[in-house]
Nucleic acid binder design. Structure first.
Length: 308
DNA sequence: TGCAGTGTTGCTTC
DNA sequence: CGAAGCAACACTGC
């Protein structure tokens, strides 16, 4: 489930692999006629105009805003990718699978000789950028929730998915007072839900919100209006710690996340709360047990003893 | 076997 | 207006 650390890991990988590569061709099995998602490649007519603008272009830079990936091209356009729940990008020597690969066509559309890129999830590759040197960037997305679109690079602020984003959760100059002011805009909602609101602060998802609240000793049902300044400072500090820890572990592969080289992240071995229902709380001297409870339609995992 | 659960976002409904 | 529910999709686990 790509959240800020996973998206940043992917963006770092893109900058290590695809910069200055020229796009030779595009393939996708997502576009269908008259898809309701206009301005995404899922819509057949958009896919045709997308190809016209992107084929022949050279990649100059990859960036992240919240959970969005921006791939800038030299020709003034930027490819916008959101991985949603199960998406991930991988780079390598891929080719269309053939009968000789010994696998049923329907379960293995693209193939790579590299052992680390031979992943069962590869049967969910739905979008492929092939470069002039015959390497490829593939987008793998089991549930097809991901979105791919195109914007003019100097008008990214107009893109629907970007214009309403709050400040980035990893922005260096984001003091606790700023976070307090932003999150107080939803002062009577559960803090768990408020942390997930991308318009208030961008990049936090369900995994890291659980970890942040566990670290800052705050119960997920507390509301912003109840928090003391000490707790706001703690929340701010914990946000940085949890996200940097996720980054240091190369992201979280609880679900199907892979980095650009096809490797798992390791953060799911380092959780203190997320999906640890029934486990003893790891907090020093805490006798609590992790419990699960639905908050604002999402599952929250927390320790009912030290999170108050 | 069947169905709840899994995350993210945006749209619809009340 | 805001909150709640649902759709997009596929697979896992009970």
């Amino acid at each position: 489930m790509p959240e800020l650390p996973e998206v940043q890991t992917t963006v770092n990988g893109l900058n290590e692999t695809v910069i200055n590569k020229k796009i030779q061709s595009l393939w996708s099995d997502l576009p269908t006629k008259n898809h309701s998602r206009k301005n995404e490649i899922k819509d057949f007519s958009f896919w045709n105009s997308f190809k016209k603008k992107v084929v022949g272009a050279t990649i100059t830079l990859a960036q992240r805003r919240g959970k969005n990936i921006l791939i800038e091209l030299h020709n003034g356009f930027t490819i916008l990718i959101h991985m949603k729940m199960t998406g991930h990008l991988m780079f390598g020597n891929y080719r269309r699978a053939t009968k000789d690969d010994g696998r049923p066509k329907h379960s293995w559309t693209w193939w790579s000789e590299a052992p680390e890129l031979q992943d069962p999830f590869n049967r969910f590759i739905h979008f492929v950028v092939t470069f002039t040197d015959e390497t490829s960037l593939v987008f793998c997305d089991a549930r097809k929730f991901g979105s791919i679109s195109l914007v003019e690079s100097n008008k990214t602020y107009l893109a629907k998915s970007l214009k309403s984003l709050g400040p980035d959760a990893l922005e260096d100059e984001l003091p606790w007072k700023e976070i307090k002011t932003r999150l107080m805009k939803q002062k009577s909602k559960a803090i768990k839900s408020v942390l997930l609101d991308q318009t208030l602060i961008a990049g936090i998802g369900n995994i890291y919100s659980d970890e942040i609240l566990w670290l800052s000793n705050i119960h997920p049902l507390r509301t912003p209006s109840e928090l003391s300044d000490i707790e706001w400072k703690s929340l701010t500090n914990s946000t940085k710690i949890a996200l940097h820890k996720g980054l240091a572990f190369g992201g979280d592969s609880t679900s199907d996340y892979r980095n650009i080289y096809g490797k798992h992240g390791e953060f799911h071995h380092a959780h203190n709360a997320y999906q640890l229902t029934g486990k003893k709380c790891n907090k020093k001297n805490c006798k609590g047990t992790i419990q699960r409870r639905v908050v604002g339609g999402r599952s929250a995992h927390f320790c009912g003893i030290h999170q108050k």
